[in-house]
Design a protein around this nucleic acid. Structure first.
Lengths: 154, 154
DNA sequence: ATTTGTGCAAATCGTTTGCATCTGA
DNA sequence: TCAGATGCAAACGATTTGCACAAAT
């Protein structure tokens, strides 16, 4: 389903990007890059991207997916999204940004950049500079939860 | 080093707190509560608290530390701080507040509530309510990092 | 030909769980 | 007494690592 020898324009572009950042444009890196950057913003977990890649007929191992995700992150092509201590998500959006997160369902929703604005921000601690600002708005279903009557403790 | 039978005023207070929230004031819960709440605000990881407890001569297992941390969190005595996907931190400060986080050193610093103000916030997705808002300002040392000269990738 | 990347499986890390034993009210 | 807690060790899921093999320049 995929022509292994010929690179289309998109691949050429990606290949150049990778080279420019010191990453050899290997088959799997190109394929993953294509999945990641080919269709607008996305957040993916390693396992997820791994499945996608395999379904797309790309021969790649989970370890390589992890490696690649981290290399891309180091190269500034991805950023890591931390919403819970379970697993890591990687976001094709690199700047500061925001998310809704429902821990009961695990879903992460993007919040458009301009939907949050700060009226006041602290200066970084002495000797530090701000790298980026993450905002996670934790939400839950608006339903039951009448009131927990003390004594709940599993 | 610790009198097992007599409870000082602090312990009585903590014991009452726990009871009021449906948690039996057991030896280890009291000891952990004392470590957690005895000296102002703190963020601790489970492993950390575990070590502290043992050094304080408290006989407690790591599993119980985890249990207790979660029970306290459920009871509203602690809040979980998510800054990285590695491990969980628990914060004795329960109200809304924010954090600086330096991933290179692992340090977490509190940001007072009033140091951040929002000029605009999004409405929660339909059917959801906002549980709480987490803000993590990621920082790093303001020094070296002159510019990564391409080609770094190890 | 060299150097760098990849795949696999085993190893690690933080955290959770199952179950027998103990403890507090 | 007896429900609820605890300790231990095994189980777990996500991620990392070591090393032989393969691919890119």
């Amino acid at each position: 389903m995929v022509d292994e020898t010929h690179r289309d324009e998109e691949e050429e572009h990606l290949a150049r990007q990778l080279k420019a950042r010191g990453l050899r444009p290997t088959r799997q890196r190109l394929a993953l890059a294509k999945l990641l950057f080919g269709r607008g913003h996305r957040h993916v977990a390693a396992e997820e991207l791994y499945q996608e890649a395999r379904q797309a007929g790309v021969s790649v191992s989970l370890a390589t997916v992890y490696n690649t995700l981290h290399q891309f992150t180091r190269a500034g092509l991805l950023s890591e999204v931390v919403v819970g201590s379970g697993q890591s998500y990687f976001d094709t959006h690199v700047g500061s940004h925001w998310h809704f997160f429902d821990k009961t369902t695990g879903e992460i929703l993007d919040i458009p950049e301009d939907a949050i604005a700060f009226a006041r921000l602290p200066a970084p601690p002495p000797g530090k500079v701000i790298d980026r600002i993450d905002v996670v708005i934790r939400v839950r279903r608006a339903e039951p939860v009448p009131e927990q009557p003390l004594g709940r403790e599993d």
